[in-house]
Write a protein that binds this DNA or RNA. Structure first.
Length: 556
RNA sequence: GGCCCCAUGGUCAAGCGGUUUAAGACGUCGCCCUCUCAAGGCGGAAUCAGGAGUUCGAUUCUCCUUGGGGCUACCA
């Protein structure tokens, strides 16, 4: 019997000339200090990373760094259908934007670096095939020639029979006990085949395991003879990850929750291979409301391109905002920590597996915007300027040109109210800045004014004229404001708001009304940062020009 | 259908048997401050899905129900 298995293995894998031992010695165990965690980020090369996988990559990175371990990047491209051209590039770019630099992995040209490579699964096909062959030779795996139609038929039969388990197992696994001669005949006939692992479980068997995040879990064992090598010779995820995670020395596989059900199957693969079981940590996925159904569902790359990290960056959100927001979703005590340590590096937040939240959070754009406004409000004007530039250079060339020609001026208006006790929180993303500050540039100032019925144009004319005549850029803000009050008072505007509110009928308005006349004339809008600062920044000439333009338009 | 995960306000969440008349943040509402806005301050409304148990005592432990999500592919 033994020899028969070997014969089958040789028949199926005439090309494989190496043994598992070869690879076992090629990739020796890592020598790391006790407690060091080795993690990996293992995406398919679909071209981009979405919020959920970015979060897991944060976990991967942080746990490895905090424990003195290793974090590596592995490209899982065994599904040729999903592979996108330049798909690796986008992933590396996204990670890099967040300062995540894998210790080992692949570079932009898809060249592997690090001692356990290659780190692209299709380049490791020979390794998987070697182990698969070994499994066949041991009688733990076998070729299956069933067609898609046959598999479908099996399922229909099972459904008709009211079987509780659907799949390729037991008496339904008709290729399980093929003889060497039968197999040879089919191979000679050129029939395609897959390799299946013989399940060691029976219907009703239970398995227990411990998830790093979820704790003890018990479920039905996997009775299916799962496919470990597809007919194209490449392995599916289950087999590839088992071999790679062992050979590459992973200690904890942090992955999305949808894998939880497959753990029994994965455990059987590890066991068949004779590998110690890698630990698993299953992370809840981020959800969103599906527009068509109105219910929650996990975000997906295919359906929700807007949740791609790159879309966030493209919209002009700083990476730090995305990072902070994800942390507030993920954990558990992060916001509290952030309050106490407003300027700490994010990667120094002490994560533990136990504290990662179990339930899938809904992506909340309001909260995200607030987080981002806080992040930007805590930046210096230099940092905001650089962020704006970097964004604009790529997505708004006109804006980039304007601000790059006026760096000091730009920083000056960015610094308005920035160094107060409580800095302004009005920028959520860099793409907001143009609309927010366009009036600082004559070429963008469009001449639309938010005027309304309350504007008393007969008052505005003399007020502006007097304001222009008395404006002195050298005086401080209080003096400036007192002057406005004095001018306003002459034309029936209360010098303080309280007086006005007490007796609105006797006034045309109050000093704030006067400010608003000026504000609208200078910026076109009713809302702006500190008006005094705007006047100074515009300078007397441009200020006067805008006031006159307004008078020409509205106060003939 | 089978199996699994999850379950505190609209959202994210503290909580891990008594110190809780259940933190905090976002959102929302009101007031204050104020040259507008953005902030900021103060305050309000709003949550333990339901039912059994265990216990002297359950948001916290167990079970059931319900709800949401996931897996059930030669996809990952």
């Amino acid at each position: 019997m033994e020899t028969n298995y070997t014969k089958i293995a040789d028949l199926l894998f005439p090309d494989v000339d190496k043994t598992p031992d070869y690879y076992l010695s090629l990739y020796p165990r890592r020598k790391l200090k006790d407690g060091a965690i080795v993690t990996r980020f293992a995406p398919s090369p679909t071209g981009y990373v979405h919020m959920g996988s970015l979060l897991t990559s944060f976990y991967d990175y942080v746990f490895a760094k905090q424990s003195g371990g290793v974090f590596y990047l592995r490209i899982e491209d065994t599904d040729l259908e999903r592979t996108v051209e330049n798909g690796v590039e986008g992933i590396i770019r996204d990670l890099k934007a967040f300062d995540i630099k894998p210790d080992e992995g692949v570079d932009l040209d898809k060249n592997s670096y690090g001692p356990y490579g290659p780190y692209i699964q299709t380049e490791r096909a020979e390794i998987y095939r070697t182990f698969a062959k070994s499994l066949v030779a041991q009688g733990k795996a076998y070729p299956c020639f069933c067609t898609k139609d046959e598999i479908d038929a099996i399922r229909h039969t099972q459904e008709a029979n009211g079987e509780s388990q659907i799949g390729y197992y037991g008496k339904y696994a008709k290729c399980r006990n093929l003889t060497f001669d039968e197999i040879k005949a089919k191979v000679d006939a050129g029939l395609p085949f897959v390799i299946r692992l013989k399940s060691t479980a029976n219907v009703g068997d239970r398995v227990k395991f411990t998830d790093k995040i979820r704790g003890q879990i018990e479920m039905s064992d996997s009775i299916n003879d799962v496919i470990i090598l597809k007919s194209n010779g490449l392995p599916p995820y289950n087999f590839a990850h088992a071999i790679d995670d062992y050979l590459m020395g992973t200690t904890v596989a942090i992955r999305s929750n949808e894998w939880l059900n497959n753990v029994p199957e994965h455990m059987q693969i590890f066991k068949a291979l004779g590998f110690p079981q890698v630990e698993y940590a299953h992370v809840a996925f981020i959800q969103k409301i599906d527009e068509t159904t109105g219910t929650k569902r996990k975000i997906s790359k295919r359906k929700d391109p807007e949740t791609a990290v790159s879309s966030m960056l493209e919209a002009g959100y700083p990476t730090q905002s995305v990072h902070e927001y994800l942390y507030t979703l993920a954990n558990t005590n992060f916001e509290e920590w952030r309050l106490k340590n407003p300027h700490e590096d994010l990667y120094s937040f002490p994560f533990t597996f136990e504290k990662i939240s179990l339930s899938g959070a809904l992506f909340d754009i309001d909260k995200f915007n607030d987080v981002s406004k806080r992040v930007i409000s805590n930046m210096t004007e230099d940092e905001v300027y650089h962020g704006m530039m970097k964004w604009a250079e790529q997505y708004d060339k006109e804006w980039a040109k304007i601000i790059s020609q006026n760096p000091d001026y730009t920083k000056a208006f960015l610094s308005i109210d920035r160094h107060n006790q409580n800095p302004r929180k009005d920028i959520a993303k860099y793409s907001d800045t143009k609309a927010l500050y366009s009036y600082f540039f004559d070429e963008l100032f469009d001449g639309n004014y938010e005027v309304d019925d309350t504007f008393r144009y007969s008052d505005i004319k003399p007020i502006f004229e007097e304001y222009m005549a008395t404006f002195d850029p050298k005086v401080d803000k209080d003096t400036w404001f007192n002057n406005i009050k004095a001018i306003g008072a002459k034309y029936g505007y209360a010098s303080n708001v309280k007086d006005y509110k007490r007796d609105p009928a006797s006034y045309h308005g109050h000093c704030g009304t006067v400010c608003n006349y000026i504000r609208v004339a200078l910026t076109g809008r009713k809302n702006s940062p500190d008006l005094y600062s705007i006047c100074l920044l515009l300078g007397r000439d441009r200020m006067n020009a805008r006031l006159k333009k307004f008078l020409d338009l509205y106060c003939k």
